[in-house]
């Protein structure tokens, strides 16, 4: 029952500082040339930041299992969208069909 849980201010401030530090880190990393690794590193930091927002700012950890399931399902469906579409475009050139 989330109404009985009040997160301490300290937790919010710590989350905020974490997000600011990660933003500075991702900016500094982006200035370097890591070749193909630039985007994976930037996305990893973005996922970390988004997770911190969901768990602490949005307080998902205090929600019921059903709400948690719905939240995770949203991102899961996104992966299905990306996965199937990318698998289509990436494999089109594998066989010589017209109109690819």
């Amino acid at each position: 029952m989330s109404e009985h849980v009040v997160t301490p201010v300290r937790t919010y401030v710590f989350t905020f500082l974490l997000l600011v530090v990660l933003t500075i880190v991702t900016y500094l990393v982006a200035l370097q040339d890591f070749g193909v690794m630039n985007t994976p590193i930037a996305l990893a930091v973005a996922f970390l930041k988004a997770t911190a927002v969901v768990i602490y700012f949005m307080g998902l950890r205090y929600n019921t299992p059903l709400t948690k399931l719905v939240a995770v399902a949203g991102f899961f469906w996104l992966i299905i969208l990306f996965g199937i579409t990318i698998s289509d475009y990436v494999t089109r050139s594998w066989i010589g069909v017209p109109g690819r």
């Binding site: 991702t26 900016y27 982006a30 200035l31 370097q32 630039n38 930037a42």
Partner: peptide, 9 residues
């Protein structure tokens, strides 16, 4: 990161 940082380096 996807829009701004992609070409920052």
């Amino acid at each position: 990161p996807l829009l701004y940082l992609l070409g920052a380096h």
